[in-house]
C-alpha cells in the first residue's frame, strides 16, 4: 500500500508538478534530427556488436588453444581492453591522429614501408566510436564465449575428434552451436547494454541519439524534455531487443529441451482457441450402494 502511494506521488510529480512541456516532448519525439540520431545509434550498436562478437569468438578460441603464444596474446588483449574505460578507448581512437598522423605499414627506412592516407580521413568520429565500442566489447564477449565453450561436455569434442574432424571443424560444427545456448542470453544483455553505451560516442561528436538530444536542448534550453525524448526512444529500442532475445534463445534451445517455450502468440492462440470441455456432470449414484445407509 505504501509502495503504491509512493508511486502515485512520483507519477503525480512528474505529470503535474514538474511543469514539463509535454507538447515539446511530443514535438521532438518524431523530429527529423532525433530520428536521424536513432539511425546512427542503431548503426553504432550493430557494427560494434558485430566486431565484438566476431572478435570475441576468435579471442575465446585463441584463449583455449594449446599453443601458449596464441593463448597469451588473447589473454593480454582481454586484460588490456577490459582494464581500461570504454570512454577512454573511444577518446583514444578519436585522437589517434595527434600521435599518428598517417596510417603506415612496415618498418620506416626500409623498402618494406607503406605510407597510407591521413589518420583523420580514415578514422572518422563514427569509426572511432565503432572501434572503441567494438574492440572493448570483444574483450567481454571473449569471456562469455569461453564460458559457453567450457559448458559443452568434453565427450562431444571426443566424439567429433574420433570421427576425424579437425580442431577447427569440431569447434565450428559441434562445440560452438551447443555453446550458443549459454552464450545467447548474456550476449542479449550485452547488446542492450551496447545500445545505451553507444551514447558515449557523444565524446567523439558522433551525431547519435543522445548527442542530438544534447545539441537540440543546448539551442532551446528544454533540457529535461529532450532527456525524456531520448529516454523514451532508448526504452523503446531495448524493449524490442528483449523480445528478439526471447526468439533467439528459443531457436538455440532446440535439441536441448523436449518442448520449446511457447511464443506469446502461441500462448494467446492457445488461450483463445482451446475449448475446455465442461467438467463431466456428477454421475448418477450407483444403484448398488450399500442399503444400510438408507
Amino acid at each position: 500500500m505504501l509502495v503504491l502511494l509512493l508511486v502515485a506521488q512520483v507519477v503525480y510529480t512528474i505529470l503535474v508538478e514538474a511543469g514539463l512541456k509535454w507538447d515539446v516532448i511530443g514535438h521532438y519525439l518524431f523530429q527529423r534530427l532525433v530520428l536521424g540520431g536513432i539511425v546512427v545509434t542503431l548503426e553504432l550498436t550493430v557494427l560494434a556488436m558485430i566486431i565484438g562478437v566476431a572478435l570475441g569468438i576468435i579471442l575465446a578460441v585463441m584463449r583455449i588453444s594449446p599453443n601458449p603464444v596464441v593463448s597469451w596474446v588473447s589473454w593480454f588483449y582481454i586484460w588490456f581492453f577490459r582494464g581500461t574505460p570504454v570512454l577512454v578507448q573511444i577518446f583514444f581512437w578519436f585522437n589517434l591522429n595527434l600521435v599518428l598522423p598517417h596510417i603506415t605499414l612496415g618498418i620506416a627506412g626500409t623498402p618494406f614501408f607503406w605510407r597510407g592516407p591521413g589518420t583523420n580521413s580514415l578514422i572518422t568520429p563514427f569509426l572511432a566510436a565503432v572501434l572503441g565500442l567494438g574492440l572493448n566489447e570483444a574483450a567481454y564477449m571473449a569471456e562469455i564465449v569461453r564460458a559457453g565453450i567450457i559448458s559443452v561436455e568434453h565427450g562431444q569434442t571426443e566424439a567429433a575428434q574420433a570421427l576425424g574432424m579437425t580442431r577447427l571443424l569440431v569447434m565450428r560444427r559441434i562445440v560452438l552451436p551447443q555453446a550458443m545456448r549459454v552464450i545467447i542470453p548474456p550476449t542479449g544483455n550485452e547488446t542492450i547494454s551496447m545500445l545505451k553505451t553507444s551514447s558515449l560516442a557523444f565524446v567523439a561528436a558522433v551525431p547519435e541519439l543522445f548527442t542530438r538530444g544534447e545539441q537540440i536542448s543546448s539551442a532551446n534550453f528544454d533540457v529535461v524534455e529532450l532527456i525524456f525524448v531520448v529516454s523514451i526512444w532508448y526504452l523503446f529500442m531495448t524493449s524490442i531487443l528483449t523480445v528478439g532475445q526471447f526468439y533467439l534463445e528459443r531457436y538455440f534451445a532446440r535439441g536441448a529441451q523436449r518442448e520449446l517455450p511457447q511464443t506469446p502468440i502461441q500462448r494467446l492462440r492457445r488461450i483463445l482457441f482451446t475449448f475446455h470441455a465442461p467438467p463431466p456432470a456428477p454421475a448418477e449414484l450407483p444403484v448398488s450402494l450399500p442399503s444400510e445407509h438408507r
Binding site: E153, G155, Q156, A162, G164, M165, I174, Q178, R254, A256
Partner: peptide
C-alpha cells in the same frame, strides 16, 4: 591425426551424440 582417426570408428559408453542435430 584426423585423417588417421577417420578410418577408425569409435562408440562411447555415454553415446555422445550431437544433441543439436
Amino acid at each position: 591425426v584426423c585423417k588417421k582417426r577417420s578410418e577408425i570408428g569409435m562408440v562411447f559408453q555415454r553415446f555422445n551424440l550431437f544433441p543439436h542435430m
